[in-house]
Design a protein around this nucleic acid. Structure first.
Lengths: 200, 200
DNA sequence: GTCTATAAGCGGATAGAC
DNA sequence: GTCTATCCGCTTATAGAC
């Protein structure tokens, strides 16, 4: 494994454990088994390392997310669950980023722009997925505002569920993440067609 | 204004502007117009100041929230909007806390416990409000799991809407906060009674 | 590419005078 | 209660040898 990659991997692990604030470049170098000077040969500073992790994260996320989102859908509800499950594992993998996102983008304009772009791209995917579900009749007819609102709500819950668990003091494990999935399903079901009623 | 209070006020302002990470005790002392030594006479360290702000925040929130939540309700949907509006302004007022909450509770076990307690108390209020709405027939009949899920969804959106706006790169102003209210209303309406259907 | 050594600066925190 | 002075430790970042 190349030194540069080892720095990124090590930094990611340490950041997830203790947060970017308390992890120094010296800690990263020591944990990666290299000298501080060597670290600075590969990166200008800590911010630079964080950006590198971010870029890795975006690439990883785009790949996983689009491959699921564009797969042929037989059961939309199940498909939604799979996407949500992927996002939760994704968030866990880069949890320091989830924890510190507002602060990090606040302090780094470059990161802010990059994040904004990837955020909007993903939201557009969710929105497209909602539109498809309306067209196929899986969801009941929704106007423009409702479709956008549903997309944003789903996305918001997917994004922040792990933070919600953390600040609630709940453990982050299979069962608590499953609760998030159950809640998202509830949301979707509330906007599904009403055949059950119209048959009465 | 007492020195201690001026420290808390100044710290809150600086934290909201720049985050707790880049604001030092020296900055706070300078901005408050006192010496660093004096600051340390009133507080043991920065963590101690953050806890003081937190306690103020909890008191402010409890007061506002319960007074709205227990007011007589004529129009539940409007009442919900008011609560949401209060929470949004509350979040804006202590926005550094919203931004850094996961990190802060991660690094301070005392804060973690205090936050958890206030979080659960508030969630219980939301849950009670949902139960009332079901009993009065404003919401359609929902089972235990659905009521809990709806309470948590509403609470999650109220809590994280401002973070969602920030990481999206959207401005935080009246109109973007109003969008959050519209979305919450959409959520509630999706769980309302179905008189509109049953009349068909 | 990698190391050692170190400069430079800052933040946290305390001692002691007033 | 408040100030000045100061110390310690740590972090960032660079210079220069290998």
């Amino acid at each position: 494994m190349k030194t540069r990659d080892r720095i990124v991997e090590t930094a990611k692990r340490l950041f997830n454990e203790s947060g970017t604030g308390s992890v120094t470049t010296n800690h990263i170098a020591a944990a990666a088994g290299i000298s501080p000077g060597n670290l600075y040969y590969h990166f200008r500073n800590k911010e630079d390392i964080i950006r590198a992790i971010f870029d890795e994260m975006v690439a990883y996320g785009r790949e996983g997310f689009t491959s699921i989102a564009f797969a042929p859908v037989s059961d939309p509800l199940r498909s939604m669950e799979e996407i949500f499950r992927f996002i939760q594992n994704f968030n866990r993998r880069y949890i320091f980023f989830k924890r510190e996102l507002p602060s990090l983008v606040l302090g780094d304009p470059v990161l802010k722009e990059r994040y904004k772009a990837s955020h909007q791209a993903t939201l557009a995917l969710v929105r497209a997925s909602v539109d498809r579900a309306v067209q196929t009749g899986f969801l009941r007819p929704l106007d423009e505002e409702e479709r956008q609102g549903l997309a944003e709500m789903s996305w918001l819950i997917a994004l922040f569920w792990i933070n919600y668990l953390e600040v609630s003091g709940e453990k982050i494990d299979e069962s608590s993440l499953e609760r998030g999935i159950a809640i998202s399903r509830m949301l979707i079901e509330a906007f599904m067609g009403r055949e059950d009623i119209s048959r009465e």
